[in-house]
Every structure is written in C-alpha cells, then in structure tokens.
Amino acid sequence: MEQIIDILSGLCIAAGIVALITGSLGLVRLPDLFSRTHAVGMMDTAGVGFIILGLIIHEGFTLISVKLALVGIFLFFTSPIATHAVAQVAYRAGLKPILDEDRTVGRVRAMPAAPKAKAARKEPKKTAKAASRKADKTAGKKAAVKKAPGKKAPGKKAPGKKAGGKR
C-alpha cells in the first residue's frame, strides 16, 4: 500500500514536471503574446494541478493536504483569469495577434537554405505586408527594429538566423 501511494504520487509529480517544463519552453519559444498565454495556461493548470495532486496523494488525509487542496483550487481558478486579463488588456492596448499570412512568412523563414532564392523571389510582397502590419501593431521601437530586416528580400534569412542564435 505504501509503495502504491509512492508510485502514484511520483507519477503525478512527473506529469506535473512535464507540463511545467513544456509550458515554460513554450513561454520562451512561442512568437506572440497571445500564443504565449496558452503556454502559461498549461503551466498554471496542468503543472500546478498534477504536482499538488501528487503532494496530496503522498500526504494522505491531513490538515496539510487540505491546505494543499486550497492552494490547488485557488490557482486552478485564478491563474487562467489572470492570463485572460493580461491578454484582454494587451489587445485593448493595441497589440494585434500574428495572423495567417505572417505565419506563412515564418514558415518560409524557418525552411533550410536550399530553396532560399525561390522563396525570396516569391515572398517580398508578403513580407512587406507583414512588416507594415507589425509596424502599425506597435508604434514604437519594436516596429522600427522589426521593419528594418524585413525590407530587403534576401535578408529575410537573416532575422531568423539571428533569432535562432539569440536563443
């Protein structure tokens, strides 16, 4: 019985670890605020839920496990509310999500170097459109930074490589 409880709690904590690491990796790697909210939501529900559940299973039925359940329930309800509020305020402040055509440009940029010439010939209109979209998204220093590499078409490889090197 003791071993069964240990195994169950270990499995729950392992699942929580997987969710936590995946969510934090997504927080670093995803391209946009509105997609990063998904990663944070995964950390806040699956990670917290599984780890707290593993601790409760390990603890048994005591006052500590009641407090753990309190933490779990509180986080399970309030963290998605906070994430949703962040996304709502960001959208109202003028931050636009990355849409379909931007994603196409991103896929071409992520391709290996061989079909670069064809892609570069095909793409500059879309890139210019994406750059203008990004420019009116945030009228600030970010727009200036993003627009500069997008202007010349063969240099489209460069921002991807730079971003990859920065990670």
């Binding site: 929580g16 936590l20 969510g23 934090s24 927080l27 944070v40 950390m43 806040d44 990670g47 917290v48 780890i51 707290i52 933490v71 986080l75 963290s79 906070a82 994430t83 962040v86």
Partner: peptide, 9 residues
C-alpha cells in the same frame, strides 16, 4: 505571473 506560479510550487 508564471514565475510566481513556479515559486508557489
């Protein structure tokens, strides 16, 4: 917010 969650855990 995510840092706060991981600190809680």
């Amino acid at each position: 917010n995510a840092i706060g969650t991981t600190v809680i855990l």
